[in-house]
């Protein structure tokens, strides 16, 4: 009887820690994938420039195409549909939102380096050339419903990649 009670108590403690570990590892993986995805998406958005302005030697982002490219790359990397809802049997469980978009280019700023700051989302970054800024937010994927619920926020600042 003593052994059974002891085993039950130890089991409760060990399983609690085990479940916490699984949930924590899942969140860590979600953070890594989200950050990578926002980096790739911002990179692709930064390639979308107005050709007419480029011919004049100015880098001005084509905002509509940039946002399209950003969303498309996010969808491809995080397995989302067109509305940024995750597909079944993928890591994320709820809709992703693009919460901040900004473009720093030759139509707004011409003096580099430029310190970009957006305190609402904790974005602080020195920019040395025309750049795009994106921030995304998604509820973290919980392994179990009892785990705490909070949102993951990732941002990326990506300068226009000059051809090499």
């Amino acid at each position: 009887m003593k052994e059974i009670i002891f085993t039950l108590l130890v089991s409760v403690v060990c399983i609690t820690f085990w479940l916490w570990q699984v949930d924590d590892n899942n969140t860590s993986l979600a953070n890594e994938r989200l950050k990578n995805a926002v980096n790739y998406a911002a990179h692709d958005a930064s390639l979308q420039v107005d050709r007419t302005e480029l011919a004049r030697g100015r880098i001005v982002f084509d905002k509509d195409t940039a946002e399209e490219a950003f969303k498309k790359t996010l969808q491809e990397n995080l397995f989302l549909d067109a509305e940024l809802n995750p597909k079944p049997n993928t890591l994320f469980k709820e809709k992703l939102s693009v919460i901040h978009t900004d473009y720093i280019d030759n139509s707004t700023i011409t003096d580099y380096p430029y310190f970009y700051e957006e305190t609402n989302y904790g974005i602080h970054h020195w920019i040395y050339g025309p750049a795009v800024v994106f921030a995304i937010e998604v509820p973290r994927p919980r392994v179990f419903e009892v785990n705490p619920r909070y949102n993951l926020v990732k941002w990326a600042v990506f300068e226009y990649p000059v051809p090499q």
């Binding site: 130890v10 089991s11 060990c14 399983i15 820690f17 085990w18 570990q21 699984v22 590892n25 860590s28 993986l29 890594e32 994938r33 990578n36």
Partner: peptide
């Protein structure tokens, strides 16, 4: 008890390998 003691290590190794590939 063997499972409780050693399975978390395997979980962690699996997770770190996943991160390494990413």
């Amino acid at each position: 008890f063997i499972v409780y003691m050693f399975q978390p290590f395997l979980n962690e190794i699996y997770h770190l390998r996943n991160l390494a590939v990413q």
